[in-house]
Computed example of a mutant assay.
Amino acid sequence: MEMNRGTHQVPEGDAAVVADDQKAIDPEGVDWLRVDPAYVKVRFIGVLIGGAVWLLITSVPLVLMLTGLWGGYPEWLAWLLPGVAVVWTLVDLIITNRRVRAIGYAERDDDLLVRQGILFKKVLVVPYGRMQYVDVQMGPVDRAFGLCKVQLHTAASDVTATIPGVTTDEGARLREQLSARGEARLAGL
């Protein structure tokens, strides 16, 4: 795997898969930087925690039915809800690696590109002159893996670009570089 400024470029084997998937909306000639591979573990933990919460919530009717406190609903429905939660979590775990591989970003001369998504693909172009501030965030799981999330806020209040799963060094570098580029472009307007 080739390293570039603390980020990961697309390995040759994955390049064809990513290129085929994103070909329709990717700009020509862009070298995408990938998020850190450890971000797969962060997402995996998040999916497991979310799945456990949904399993607890969807198991309430089953527990109430088994204890005899709640009746009147079909027994199969009480069993179906936790089953759906488990299946949903398993599917989410299976596609987590692919979701993380679909995240990428590229710094160009005048703008930053951020892409993500495997079913609903999105490529966001953020001109440096439209950036108002750059935010770096770390949750407890991110911190355990030495990762952070870089969030760019633009002049349009509802538009933010997020690059999750970058190393803390890369996050600090992006914050400083993107802020400096934003100020330089804003001053030139």
Rank of each mutant, 00 (worst) to 15 (best):
S179C: 11
V136F: 09
V35P: 04
N4A: 09
R43S: 09
D169F: 08
I45R: 08
E2D: 03
V114A: 05
K121C: 03
T96N: 14
L189I: 10
G72I: 12
L174F: 06
P74D: 02
D21M: 11
G188Y: 07
V40Y: 00
A52M: 14
M138A: 01
V125E: 14
G71W: 00
P11T: 09
P61Y: 07
V126N: 05
A172C: 00
G117M: 08
A52P: 01
R185E: 14
Y105E: 04
S179N: 13
L147F: 04
G50L: 10
G83E: 06
M3K: 08
T58N: 09
L56V: 08
P140K: 06
V53I: 15
T162W: 01
R108G: 09
S179R: 12
A52N: 03
G13I: 13
L119K: 01
R99E: 08
I94C: 04
L62E: 04
I118Q: 04
G146T: 02
N97Q: 05
R99A: 00
I49W: 00
A172I: 05
V166S: 07
L174Q: 03
G117T: 10
L55M: 07
V159C: 02
V53Q: 11
Y73I: 10
G165Y: 05
D135W: 04
V100G: 05
T89S: 15
Y128A: 07
T7G: 00
Y133G: 00
E183R: 11
K149M: 10
V123N: 02
G68P: 04
E107A: 07
L69K: 15
D20E: 11
A15H: 11
V123D: 01
A19L: 12
M3P: 00
N97K: 13
T58D: 05
V10E: 15
A106D: 14
L124G: 10
Y73T: 13
L62N: 07
D110Y: 08
V42L: 10
A102W: 05
V60K: 03
G71V: 00
G188V: 12
A38N: 02
R108V: 05
Q9F: 06
R115L: 04
A161Q: 06
M138E: 13
F120L: 14
L124R: 01
V126A: 05
G182N: 02
V53N: 09
V40G: 00
K122G: 05
Q116L: 08
V150A: 05
R185V: 04
L55K: 01
K122T: 14
D26N: 14
I118G: 12
E170P: 01
F44K: 13
V60E: 02
M138H: 11
G165I: 07
G71N: 08
Q9R: 15
V35G: 06
V40H: 02
L48V: 11
K121W: 07
L69G: 15
W54G: 03
A180K: 07
A38P: 02
Y39N: 12
V10C: 09
I163M: 04
D158F: 13
P164N: 03
Y128G: 14
G72V: 02
G146Q: 06
C148Q: 00
G171Y: 10
P164W: 06
M1P: 05
L119M: 02
